[in-house]
Amino acid sequence: MSAREVVSLTPAFLREWPLPSPQGDKSSRGTVLVIGGSRSTPGAVILAGTAAMRAGAGKLQIATSESTAPALGVAVPEAMVIGLPETPMGNVAAEPPQQLLDLVSSADVVVVGPGLFDGDETDQLLAAVLGALGDDSAAVVDACALASVARRPEVLEGCADRVVLTPNQSEGAGLLDRELSDDLDAEAAEIAQKYGCVVSLFGHIAGPVGGAWRDETAGSGLGTSGSGDVAAGMVGGLLARGAEPSQAACWGINVHAAAGQRLAVERGRTSYLAREIVDGIAPALAALEV
C-alpha cells in the first residue's frame, strides 16, 4: 500500500476547514436516528444521541429495545424514542418493524451499533437498516455493527461513500481479520480502501480514495466505558449539520479529545466519565468555532 501524507489535526487546520453553519430552524441541522441499546446496555444510545445533539444536530430519534424505550424517553426528553422487538436476552431483534425502516429512510444520519451485542441479530438488522438508507443520507457504523460489516461487507453496497466506520483497535483488527500493526495510519487506510468508507481508528482517520489525518491530543482518560459511543454520536451530529464524512470524522475525533483534555484538568487524567465528555463537547466546539 502506498504511503499517504498524514495531516495533523490542529486547531489552526480545523479552523481553515470550517464546519457548515446551517441557518433556520432545527430541520436545517438535520435529524439523527440512533439505533442500538439492549436491556443490559441501555445507556449507549443515550450517550450517542446526546453527543449528536451537542455536536449540533437539530432533531434526535432513538430506536432501542422495547423494554427500555419508555425509560429512555424520560431520560432523553429531547428525543423521539421508539421500542423495537427484542430477543429473550434483551437485544434488538433481527427483523426491524416497518416503523423503523420508515424512520431510517427519512433520517439525515443513522448511527447504528451502540449497545448492541448479538452478532447474528445485528447482521440482519444492519443489512435492513443500510438497505433502507435514503439516497442522500449518511450513516455511522459502530461497536457490534462493525463485526457485522466484517462478516457481510456487501451490506455497504450503494452507500459506502456515505458511511463512517468508527472502530476501536479490537474492532479494527476484526475488520482486517488479523492483528493490527503499530502503524495505525496505515491500518486505517487499509480498512478505508477495503470497505470504501471513511474510517476513524483510534485517532487515525482515512478516506477510501486518499486523505489521511491524525489526532495526537487524546489522553488515556478517553479509554473509559461509553467513550466510543460518544465519539460515534458526535460524528453523526456533525454529519447532520452538513459536514461530509471525512470532515465529520476529523472534527469529531478532535473535539472528543479536546473535551477529554478539559476534563483531565478538572477531574484527573483517568477519573472522568463518558457522560461528562458529552457535556464537554459544547465548550470544545465553541473554542474551535471562534
Rank of each mutant, 00 (worst) to 15 (best):
G172K: 08
F202M: 15
A232Y: 07
L201C: 08
E190L: 14
E171M: 10
Q169I: 14
G172E: 11
A212L: 05
L175H: 05
P167Y: 06
Q193I: 05
A188K: 02
Q169A: 15
A206G: 11
L239R: 02
Q193Y: 00
S220R: 15
M234V: 15
G172M: 08
G211W: 08
A186E: 15
P208Y: 07
G219H: 13
L176W: 06
T224D: 00
F202P: 00
P167M: 08
E187N: 11
G236Y: 08
E216G: 12
L180Q: 06
V209L: 12
A232K: 09
P167F: 07
Q169H: 13
T217L: 12
G233S: 08
Q169K: 13
W213C: 11
R178G: 14
L238M: 11
V198R: 01
M234H: 10
P208I: 03
F202C: 14
G219Q: 14
L175G: 11
G174T: 02
S227P: 09
V230Q: 11
G196Y: 07
A212D: 07
G242W: 01
A173V: 07
G174N: 12
V230E: 03
S220W: 09
W213S: 08
E171Q: 12
N168C: 10
I205E: 13
A218P: 08
G226I: 02
D183F: 00
D183K: 06
G237P: 08
N168W: 07
P167C: 13
G196L: 04
V235G: 00
L184H: 12
G236A: 10
W213H: 12
L175W: 04
A189D: 15
E216K: 10
D229Q: 04
A212C: 11
G196I: 03
A240L: 09
G237Y: 04
H204N: 15
P208T: 06
K194G: 13
T224I: 03
G172W: 02
K194F: 00
E187Q: 14
G172R: 12
W213E: 11
Y195D: 11
T166Y: 05
L165R: 04
L180F: 07
D177C: 03
A218V: 09
G207R: 01
D185T: 00
G174W: 06
N168A: 05
A192G: 10
G228A: 09
G226E: 09
K194M: 01
S200E: 15
A231R: 09
V198I: 12
G236F: 09
T166G: 04
S181Y: 04
E216T: 15
G196S: 06
I191G: 11
K194I: 01
L176Y: 04
S200R: 00
I191W: 04
L201R: 04
G236T: 04
D183C: 05
L180A: 04
G221L: 04
D182T: 07
A192L: 06
S220P: 03
D182V: 02
G223K: 10
G172F: 04
S200Q: 14
S170M: 14
W213P: 08
